[in-house]
């Protein structure tokens, strides 16, 4: 194949994805940026202007930002604390043949409907679920649904599979001989873990935590179903602003703020993890 025709083919092959992404993701985000400096039209929607009023108005949704910025990190941390021991168990103690089956069992729920899985907890935490059981053994008046606790449980449940996987990958890659060396040099198992295993698994931990945290920043379903309108996130504010009250300029300002916060986190992460000459590849399946 001649060089020229081959580069022509390459352009043709890459064009659909490039056009699609530009037209539906990159340009719209720029449009949202423009909208965020606009004014609300009388009929709802956008009126051209250049004002920072929408950004100045952000404190109106302070509760949503506060809830998100408290519960998203808390949920990430809780999911990490539960996921790490499981990932360690799978990567370092289970024999390889059973390991694949057990790992698949962790991932499977992630590929089922998020809506259904969250709905299941409405069922469990609702009046006839755990509260009824507690009443049966004499603890009365426990309310779980529509509380921050319910949202936190939903977060841990929904994102646990996503947390386990990258940590598992990094733990599985830890070189056995390093652990043996540490052991031979008289380090206790706890010390070997703290000084060898844990530091070597940190890239996986960071990847997992960042993926979960970023997805949580845009979470809508968990607060909508388990927070019952009392505990709401930025995602819920966005649905309200774009779909219900149709205040697009303000919605755009909230969305841009969200994207900026996410970008800052991602770039901090990149600087931390992707040191020169070191690459990390994490597949999601």
């Amino acid at each position: 194949m001649a060089k020229k025709s081959s580069s022509y083919v390459t352009t043709l092959l890459l064009a659909p994805m490039a056009i699609w992404m530009t037209a539906l993701l990159i340009l719209p985000i720029l449009v949202v940026l423009v909208y965020s400096f606009g004014e609300l039209a009388e009929m709802g929607g956008y009126k051209p202007a250049f004002t920072l009023a929408q950004y100045a108005n952000l404190p109106a949704r302070l509760t949503a930002f506060k809830n998100t910025l408290v519960l998203a990190p808390a949920g990430t941390l809780a999911a990490f604390l539960i996921a790490y021991p499981l990932a360690y168990y799978l990567a370092r103690t289970v024999e390889p043949r059973r390991r694949m089956i057990l790992l698949t069992l962790v991932i499977v729920p992630f590929w089922t409907s998020f809506l259904i899985r969250t709905y299941a907890w409405m069922f469990i935490l609702g009046g006839r679920g755990i509260p009824a059981l507690l009443e049966f053994i004499g603890i009365e008046g426990v309310r779980l649904l529509n509380t921050p606790t319910a949202v936190l449980i939903g977060i841990v449940y929904g994102y646990l599979p996503l947390m386990v996987f990258p940590i598992f990958v990094s733990l599985e890659k830890v070189d056995e001989s390093l652990l043996e060396a540490s052991n031979d040099l008289g380090a206790s198992p706890v010390r070997t873990f703290l000084q060898v295993t844990l530091p070597l698994s940190l890239p996986g931990v960071a990847t997992a935590c960042m993926i979960v945290f970023i997805l949580l920043m845009g979470e809508f379903l968990i607060p909508a179903l388990l927070g019952g309108g009392k505990v709401f996130f930025i995602g819920n504010a966005l649905v309200d602003l774009f779909l219900q009250s149709r205040n697009w300029p303000f919605g755009s300002a909230v969305a841009i703020t969200l994207v900026v916060v996410m970008l800052v986190i991602v770039s901090l992460y990149m600087r931390m993890i992707f040191k020169p000459g070191k690459t990390q590849d994490v597949s999601m399946i």
């Binding site: 997805l215 649905v239 969305a255």
Partner: peptide, 20 residues
């Protein structure tokens, strides 16, 4: 980026693109 960002961002982006 496309794999990492939350679905809600895709929703808003496409809504804005198509509505415009």
């Amino acid at each position: 980026i496309a794999i990492m960002i939350p679905g809600i961002v895709f929703g808003i982006a496409t809504l804005v693109a198509l509505a415009t």
